[in-house]
Design a protein around this nucleic acid. Structure first.
Lengths: 328, 328
DNA sequence: TTGAAAGCGTTACCAC
DNA sequence: GTGGTAACGCTTTCAA
């Protein structure tokens, strides 16, 4: 296919490229009839602007880089979906990169994306403790689902402490006393926050004495195993507050095969409220997040930043809600 | 940040831009020591090539467009993940667009992606009956998970007939006789194929007489409702072959609330074998697909096409496998 | 209201 | 081996 350029259109119409350019871009100072003529002819000839050329002239390409752990994780999948929809509304597109929670992958991704000429970046950082890990980002960016202490970054995240608190409080209120929490090794905002909320509820319940904090670390795949090992050796656990629904599902499966009844013997609460939480049995009680909101808001803010707007508010925090079902 | 260009490097080194360009791109005809000098200085000055400018000169941008129904669908999520990994291996990036199975969205997406300068497109078409719906694609493309009859497109897909056959045969073999299948309205390769496989198994079993083909149409959300309505009015169903695992989960939920035991009263088999199939109860029997392979292979082929290779083989077909668990 | 020309950063052709 | 220059397609002064 031969590309139709602005020059071709100009030639046919006996106009200059500049006039055609102005007409196409709805600039002032161009005769209305000329504009019509140009636009009609352009359409007729199948003219499409060359975005590279525009970009070279300092215009935006309309690309947003997305750096996340794993797009197949149902939590991120929903977030990305929200991002995508919002981006589309503004004529932007998403450039997706999975990091598998690997820091060097993230560094590489950020570098790469900028080379591709993205106008901005949406990132759920692998580490969120050292703010200057964001230094290599030279374009506007928004942090998604993470929070850097004392940073000036634009961030969209969840009140994880509240989530952890809500779950643990509910367990406590329904009579559970030996509540174990199982979280990933990673020291990221969500793990810190959820654990903190868990401790807070415990502390509150015991009048300041945090005497029964049972904290396990595990990968999602091993959650069941680690939990089983703990129960076998320590015994007496009557509730589990899992990092997320995947952990919770693993926990339930493991407890069941160990002969425990869920929730009779052991209650289990998850986090994220993925769509499948409804179908498992017992139906999963989970801390629910509006994932679409997370993605949508992040993109909305990023696009504002790209278009040069200065945001007065930098932190956008969502309050999670406990969705009580049968597992706890 | 001020962008460092090839010209800046040239000036500092007292060389011409052309020499610097050649040195950087490892072309012939440039003194080895000059090359070293240039590369060192370029790194030192923090030079990064402007991809737009390269693209304008007809070079590739390294972008692959992905057009699918919904990235949050666990099936596509896994496929996209496979694509992403393979693309990364080759230095490519993914531009994601969801169509929500809407044809006009697809048309728009394809147009848009090409404007963004993608080097190729991976598409799971919304309709796969009219080959010339692909006409607007002017770049290399690969069809994913769909198959156009008699087309010359490069396609990576599954043997859906076999999948439907396997599931139905298994149901028949385990003594089920009133097997209903529930499929989406859409006339796409997977629905056609799975239904055909279902009919084939029935026909085979009844010695050529396809006397008990019970075919229901439904959206995923309404699958439970539609099924219930059918069972209530027609009664006597002892097995369900669902379009995919979402349909199967809805079916199971609906059957359970109607007082049926799964699988004792009614067996249910799904399709896709999503990760959550293991956790529901009863654990879902499902037709399993290697989603990663699908994504990986599609990208591999697309990149070959982009680099000008001519593929002798155009159709890449995967044989599904029945993963028998508890539901059927 | 329109046109000519410069320039964005890069590559490639052609001299030297 | 190296340098000058045109060209990729577009936008944007500056004149006319």
């Amino acid at each position: 296919m031969v590309r139709v350029t602005i020059r071709d259109v100009a030639k046919v119409l006996n106009l200059s490229v500049s006039t055609v350019s102005r007409a196409l871009n709805d600039k002032e100072d161009v005769d209305e009839r000329t504009r019509i003529r140009v636009k009609t002819m352009a359409r007729e000839m199948g003219y499409t602007p060359n975005l590279m050329a525009k970009a070279l002239k300092g215009k935006t390409l309309g690309l947003l880089g997305v750096v996340i752990d794993d797009n197949a994780n149902p939590f991120y999948a929903e977030v990305v979906k929200g991002m995508e929809r919002e981006a589309k509304r503004h004529g932007f597109h998403l450039l997706l990169v999975n990091t598998a929670a690997d820091y060097s992958e993230q560094v590489f991704a950020i570098d790469f994306l900028q080379n591709k000429g993205v106008d901005g970046i949406l990132v759920a950082p692998v580490k969120d403790t050292i703010p200057n890990e964001m230094d290599p980002i030279k374009v506007p960016f928004v942090i998604v689902g993470r929070h850097f202490e004392n940073s000036t970054f634009t961030e969209v995240y969840n009140d994880e402490v509240l989530g952890g608190y809500l779950a643990t409080k509910h367990l406590l209120d329904s009579g559970r006393r030996k509540i174990v929490t199982i979280q990933p090794e990673m020291d990221i905002f969500p793990t810190r926050g959820r654990t903190e909320g868990y401790r807070k509820a415990l502390r509150e319940f015991s009048n300041g004495l945090l005497d029964e904090s049972l904290e396990l670390k595990s990968s999602p795949e091993e959650a069941g195993l680690i939990l089983k090992r703990y129960v076998d050796s320590e015994g007496k656990v009557d509730a589990v507050f899992a990092y997320n629904d995947m952990y919770a599902l693993e926990a339930i499966a493991s407890l069941k095969t160990s002969g425990f009844k869920v929730p009779e013997d052991v209650a289990v609460i998850g986090y994220d409220d993925i769509p499948y939480a409804v179908y498992v049995s017992p139906a999963l009680t989970s801390v629910a997040l509006d994932k679409d909101w997370l993605g949508r808001t992040a993109v909305e803010l990023l696009i504002k930043m790209i278009s040069g707007k200065v945001l007065k508010k930098k932190k956008y925090i969502q309050k999670p809600v406990l969705r009580v079902r049968d597992s706890g």
